[in-house]
Amino acid sequence: MTEDRLIELIESWGADPSAFPQAERGAARALLAAHPERFATAIAEARALDAALARMPDVFPPPALTAALIASAPKPKRAGGALRVPKFAPWAPASGAAALAAGLFMGLMAAPSASASASADSETDDVQALLEEAIGYDPAAMSEGIAE
């Protein structure tokens, strides 16, 4: 270990010899102990910088970032493999037939209500005729009068 090499180590790794490369640590410690005055300036400068760096606070991810990192992770697979829809669904024709049957059923159910609606219309016409007769209103005579 030369003095120049020890200065290099201090300038690179700082004042604490335990941060030096392991292979050179022992020799560096011995040289430092033998001639502390020769390295006092380098050690003091390195120590000041070490202290400034040591004041840097630890960085902690905010909860939102942690949550986002966890959310982006792989999701557990379902037991027996993921649920997949096959390209050809064997039940497709059956579902088509079921839809057709449902349509027909709905049509048949709607038909009686349509005829009920028609009979309701004829009842309304009868009531209107009775009312017109009661008040002596004759729509045919009214149309002829307008024509003349």
């Binding site: 966890i70 992770a73 697979k77």
Partner: peptide, 16 residues
């Protein structure tokens, strides 16, 4: 494999 506890452990250990 999607183990939530393992995911959380890796995130907590290495994200800082």
């Amino acid at each position: 494999a999607g183990d939530a506890a393992a995911v959380r452990a890796l995130v907590n250990r290495y994200s800082p």
